[in-house]
Every structure is written in structure tokens, then in C-alpha cells.
Simulated assay, not measured.
Amino acid sequence: MKTLVRDGCPDYSMTDSAAFPCARFIKEIGRGPNGARALTREDTYALYEAMLDNRVSDLELGAVLLAYRVKGETAAELAAMLAAAHRSFEPLHIQNGRDNARPVSIPSYNGARKQPNLTPLLALLLAREGVPVLVHGVTDDPGRVTSAAIFAELGVEASTSHDEIEDNLASRRLAFAPITVLAPKLGRLLAIRRIMGVRNSTHTLVKILQPFAQPGLRLVNYTHPEYRESLTGLFTEHPDAAAGGALLARGTEGEAVADTRRQVQVDWFHDGHAQTLMSPERSSPEAPAVPLPESLDAATTARWIETVLRGEAPIPAALARQAELIADIVRR
């Protein structure tokens, strides 16, 4: 199979496998927000698998992505897509950390635009406590400060292969993996945003991905309330999707790190149970200001993170609580 590179992302040409006709699927999901119908689990799996394998024509692929953009995915459709996504890449094999701590997966696909991106600080705090932490995401996003850029300023280079991800997790309990390295087929579908201008179902899937062969804890975040409902349905109605446990909370500009301005609700889905661990609190005008980096750029944020790790600046209380909660869960 011939492989090209477009916008820094692998662009796989159509395989020799038979093309996958999508008309009957588009007819169901493409009827608009009021008339569209959900596909069966079997049909959803087959469709998304074909999309991952690049067996769907560009015209039909664009139609499917836009149809789901308008309709939204049901919990059952997300479960089927996630199952296909997991079959499309090799999971990571790693050992537990200190005190038998299970690994943690932190998706980072949004970066910072209005607030500092503190996802790298959360990851480093956990790794310092002996928790293996994988941060996976995009390496660049125009107009935003990515975790990849901040990690690079901190001397944590992006892993370039599957083996290197595992080696970094084993040696320093921390790895940043570009999605194009961790799961190339998902990376290809994710990159279509640059062509179409809007996000697609894959942006939701990478945020709920279970990258470990022995399931670890996932931090899952959402921005829009309707996604809280669909993700709650996913984790409660489809226990396999919650394997290893998932912490669900409203994101900070789409990142899974705690919001330093307020406490948001945090729900823990595990072993067929749903448990609210933290309740939402409104920010108070009397609350003391939280010291944060003076600028959003990667270099300034990285230098500030270093001062926090050296103990020269306080850890924001919300992040300290989040790190403590995560460390406690993965050691249970």
C-alpha cells in the first residue's frame, strides 16, 4: 500500500480491498437532526472499520462524517466505533508503577487558547508519584498551545514508535505519543478536520481510547453537555467500553486537566458502577487568585511548570486534588 504524507500526517491510499459502499448507511444517518436514525451496532462497526481501513470513497466519507456531525452518535454507536478503533492498532504492554499503580491515559487534542495548558503539569505530577502516564494527542494545532509543544520545552520529546512509547513509560513513567504513532488509522481520520474544517466522530473516540493491553484508567472530558449524556450512556450501558475505569468531567478548553477557577463534577465509571467523586462548585469572587503562568506560550508555561515541580510555586489546588484522586484510584 502506497503511503503519502499530507499536512504532516500519513495519508493512506485506497487499499486493494473491495471498496465499501455507504449509500444505505448515509440514507439512515443523513436525514438531518430530526429524521436521522441510528445504525445498528453491527452496521456501525462495519462502517467505521471500513473508514479506518480507507475503503470508503472520499465523497462518501465526507457525507458520513457530516451526517454524524449533525446527528450525533448514540451510546451504542460510540461503543461500536470504539470497538473498531481498538482493533485498528496494537495496544501498549507496560508494567504497573510504584505501589502497583495502574497506568493512566490522558488525551490531549485541544491545547490552550484562553488559559494555560496544564495537562503536562498533571502528567508530571502523577509520574513523579510513580504512576505510569501516557499523554496522547496532536503535535500541532494552529492557534492553540499543544501539550506536545510544552513537553518539548520540558525535554520530553514525542515518541516516534510503538516500542519507544513502551520504553519511555518503563524508564521514566511518562510518554507523549502523537496519535499518528499510537494509532495511525485514527490519526488519518482525525486529520480530515483540516480538509473539512469541522471535527468528526474520531475526535470523540480518541478522547475515550483505551490504549493499554491491560486496561488502565482513562481521563475523559467533554465540552458540550450533550456529550456528557452520550458518554455516560456509553460507560453505563456498555461495560466493556469502561474497562479499566474512566473519570469523566467537563474539560478545560477541551483538555482533561482540572479547571483552576472552579471545581467541576467528576464521575468515576468502573466495574459496571457509576460514582460521583467530586461535586461541582461555583467560583467565588472572594477566592484568592490562583498563580498561573504570565503567558500562554509553550516556553513560558514550561518554565512555570518547572518552578512548580521544584516547589518554588504552589501547585494549583484543583490540580493537586485531581492528581491525588487519580493516584488513589490507580492504586486500589
Rank of each mutant, 00 (worst) to 15 (best):
residue 256 A to T: 09
residue 182 L to D: 07
residue 94 I to E: 07
residue 19 A to W: 09
residue 33 P to D: 11
residue 41 R to V: 14
residue 323 A to F: 03
residue 78 L to D: 04
residue 17 S to A: 14
residue 321 R to S: 08
residue 32 G to K: 11
residue 199 R to T: 15
residue 242 A to T: 00
residue 211 P to L: 08
residue 40 T to V: 02
residue 204 T to E: 13
residue 160 T to W: 12
residue 243 A to R: 14
residue 3 T to N: 14
residue 248 L to D: 04
residue 16 D to V: 14
residue 321 R to K: 15
residue 68 Y to H: 01
residue 7 D to H: 14
residue 315 I to M: 03
residue 129 E to N: 06
residue 7 D to L: 13
residue 159 S to L: 07
residue 70 V to Y: 00
residue 216 G to F: 06
residue 47 L to T: 14
residue 225 P to C: 00
residue 114 K to T: 14
residue 69 R to N: 02
residue 127 A to W: 02
residue 289 A to Q: 04
residue 161 S to Y: 01
residue 160 T to A: 10
residue 297 D to S: 03
residue 41 R to N: 13
residue 158 A to H: 09
residue 273 H to A: 13
residue 106 I to A: 13
residue 105 S to A: 15
residue 76 A to Y: 02
residue 230 S to A: 03
residue 203 H to R: 11
residue 216 G to C: 08
residue 128 R to Q: 07
residue 323 A to T: 10
residue 330 V to T: 05
residue 297 D to W: 01
residue 273 H to V: 13
residue 80 A to I: 01
residue 127 A to P: 13
residue 203 H to P: 10
residue 247 L to N: 08
residue 308 V to I: 07
residue 201 S to R: 12
residue 56 V to E: 00
residue 25 F to Q: 12
residue 92 L to T: 08
residue 248 L to S: 06
residue 43 D to F: 02
residue 51 M to S: 04
residue 217 L to M: 05
residue 155 G to A: 09
residue 321 R to A: 12
residue 105 S to K: 03
residue 251 G to V: 07
residue 61 L to E: 05
residue 265 Q to R: 10
residue 303 R to K: 07
residue 72 G to A: 01
residue 185 K to G: 09
residue 269 F to T: 01
residue 11 D to N: 11
residue 263 Q to L: 06
